Structure formats: structure tokens, C-alpha cells
Amino acid sequence: MTNAQPDLSDRKTRLKYKMEEARRELVDTIKNLTDAQLNLPSVNPGWTIYDMICHICGAEPGMEIIAQRILAGEQTMVEGFDINRFNAGQVKKRQGKVVVEMIEELNQSRIRMLALLDRATDEQLNLRGQHPAAGEIDLYGLYVVIYRHEREHTENIKEALVASGK
């Protein structure tokens, strides 16, 4: 039995592969963290590793809304949207959840995002909208933002763990 890499020349296949790869690395990094490790400071001032996990959990559902609006041809940004306020609210909303609950939340949001990707045509991947941090972006690029965001924060968590020696 071989673990052949999928044909990454297909855009949707490439996105799915990258998203699954990023998610696997994130889950492997956070699934066995101790309470002491979760309470370590992260690179985000005022956030612990736990808070960063809360943030990651809230990010994908927000991007799901953007994707749905792009596909519907609707305006993707709400007037006066403040990404910092949104992120802080998502962290606060998840306080008290244990990591296993957040992993399940991540799994559910990923199932929805991949289903949305499956339904999108190749032409729809070129539809454009506005992302609060990335600016004007097409649907394909939104998926790239999702997996890169996850990878970035996974690396942030690993760096915080190394820096603490825990």
C-alpha cells in the first residue's frame, strides 16, 4: 500500500490537501497540552496558548460566512466591522471549553468548509469578496488564508512551548 500524494494540479484537490495537512498539524500540536502549557503566554500580547486555540476555533466559522457571501454575490464585509473586536469576542465566547471540545468544533467547521468547497465550481473559485485582513480576495484565496492562518498559529503555539521549555 502506498501513500501516493494526490494530484495537486487540481485547485480544489490542492486546497483540500493543504487544509487537511494544516489541521492535522494543529490537532497533533494541541491535543495533549497540559493546563500549564495552555496557560503559557503566546506571541499575541495578552493571549495564552489557550486563547489562541479559542481564536482559531472562531476564525473558520467567520470565514465560512465570507465564503457563503462570496458565492451568493453578496457584500462580504459588514460596515464598521472590527476584526480585533471580533477576535476578542470569539476568544471570550469559548472560555471554559476544554481542548477536546474545541477540536470537535474545529472538525465541524472544517466539514462545513470542505462541503462548501465541494459544491463550488471551478469558476466560482474566482469570485471575489472582501476579507477583513487580506483585503480583496477570491474564494480560492480565502481557502488559502484559512490554512495559512492555521499554520501560522500552530507555529506560534510551538514557539511558545519551546520558549517556555515545557
Rank of each mutant, 00 (worst) to 15 (best):
T2M: 09
N3H: 11
A4I: 08
A4N: 14
L8M: 10
S9T: 14
D10H: 12
R14G: 07
L15Q: 01
K18Q: 15
M19F: 02
E20L: 06
R23A: 00
E25F: 08
L26F: 08
L26S: 03
L26R: 00
A36I: 09
Q37K: 09
Q37P: 03
Q37R: 04
L38A: 04
L38I: 06
L38C: 14
N39G: 14
L40D: 01
I49T: 09
I49P: 01
D51M: 07
D51I: 02
D51A: 12
C54S: 13
C57R: 04
E60F: 09
G62F: 10
M63K: 13
I70N: 06
I70V: 15
A72I: 03
A72K: 12
G73V: 05
E74D: 15
M77P: 00
V78H: 06
F81C: 14
D82C: 05
D82Y: 05
R85F: 10
R85K: 15
N87H: 02
R94A: 02
K97V: 00
K97E: 14
V98N: 13
V99I: 11
V100N: 14
V100T: 15
E101Q: 10
E101W: 01
E104Q: 11
E104D: 11
N107D: 13
R112V: 13
L114T: 04
D122V: 02
Q124A: 05
N126G: 11
G129T: 00
P132V: 02
I137V: 11
Y140R: 09
G141Q: 01
L142R: 05
I146L: 15
I146H: 03
H149G: 01
H153F: 03
I157F: 04
K158P: 14
L161E: 02
L161S: 06
A163Y: 03
